[in-house]
């Protein structure tokens, strides 16, 4: 708390044009809170109470609105990232989990786990624009860099659903391995990665055809294969490396973005799920749900340099833009 006050004072001293320090926001699913971490010092700024069972988290392009899925409150809360004051809530539909913002900053596409729906919400007018029926237990949400294609994964139907963001209609389905959790496009939109938690794989999909061009598998000596459960996926901007969180294997895999070979396994905290880069890709942050901490990976060195204790059962993570 003292660190937060000091930060606020510094901000005032620098005047209105000064940028707020770059901050990592972590949802603590069990703690009903968001922990803020200063990227410059890698120290916790504070932990702030939010709605019940916060999971998905993202931030607007201008860094002025922080979106938090309060799953058990059936709403998406929008906070001022600097003050952590609640600005308003969005009509998310029941049990929102993951969501993704359109690259233009609007609308927000929300997976409603309980209702087999993706809800499209205008974040300015705060109205639901559409509900898109998808497979059982929608979860992962990825959007193409041009904003034209939304990909939702359904955990029990085991598909990646390709949705046209103009018509809100599904135009293609790709069957992937069991319990797909996260969908992530490369920055140039040429590839789509879909992790399958129970299947233990990451499918590499050509978004143009919807075909799976490669299946990434994992193996760690001394770790039982069932524990290799891919969830979070993040690709470097140049597409050269793919980082995959492996859940209860307590590791993040580093995959070559061209050959899809696994190059490295980085030991992090327990039950690692979601990942977020800093915009300059210097660091990658991981949420470790069973050890209540965030691991900091030095991306260039592919080394874990710090573990930061956060709230109870960290789930989602996002870093503010520059």
């Amino acid at each position: 708390m003292r660190g937060f006050l000091a930060g606020a004072v510094a901000l005032l001293a620098l005047g209105p044009v000064a940028a707020w320090a770059q901050v990592v926001f972590v949802t603590n699913e069990k703690g009903n809170s968001v922990t803020r971490i200063d990227v410059a010092t890698l120290e916790v700024i504070d932990t702030v109470p939010v709605g019940q069972r916060p999971r998905g988290i993202t931030i607007s392009n201008d860094g002025r609105q922080l979106f938090v899925a309060a799953s058990d409150d059936d709403t998406v809360q929008v906070f001022d990232p600097e003050t952590m004051r609640l600005i308003h809530t969005l009509p998310s539909g029941p049990d929102p989990e993951q969501f993704v913002l359109h690259p233009s900053g609007n609308p927000l596409f929300i997976a409603n786990e309980d209702d087999n729906l993706v809800t499209v919400v205008d974040v300015v007018t705060r109205r639901a624009l559409a509900e898109i029926p998808v497979g059982i237990e929608p979860e992962g949400m990825g959007i193409s860099p041009d904003g034209r294609v939304l990909v939702n994964t359904s955990e029990t139907t085991n598909m990646a659903h390709f949705i046209d963001t103009e018509t809100f209609k599904i135009f293609h389905n790709t069957l992937v391995d069991s319990r797909p959790r996260v969908a992530e496009f490369t920055r140039d939109g040429s590839l789509l990665f879909v992790s399958a938690e129970i299947g233990g794989t990451v499918s590499v999909i050509d978004p143009a055809s919807g075909e799976i061009v490669h299946t990434i598998r994992f193996a760690v000596p001394g770790v039982t294969p069932e524990a290799l459960q891919p969830v979070g996926v993040r690709v470097t901007a140049d597409g050269s490396r793919v980082f995959v969180a492996l859940g209860p294997a307590n590791r993040v895999a580093v995959v070559d973005g061209r050959t899809f070979e696994v190059k490295n396994y980085l030991l992090v905290g327990q039950r690692v799920w979601q990942l977020a880069f800093t915009p300059d890709e210097r660091y990658l942050f991981t949420t470790n749900g069973n050890s209540n901490d965030v691991s900091v990976i030095d991306v260039a060195a592919e080394r874990v340099i710090k573990s930061i204790p956060v709230g109870d059962q960290p789930w989602g993570v996002v870093v503010s833009p520059n």
Partner: peptide, 16 residues
Amino acid sequence: MLRTVLTAAIALAPMA
């Protein structure tokens, strides 16, 4: 609220 929502038709595109 949701009653006013434009619900996208269940236009599922079956795979081959």
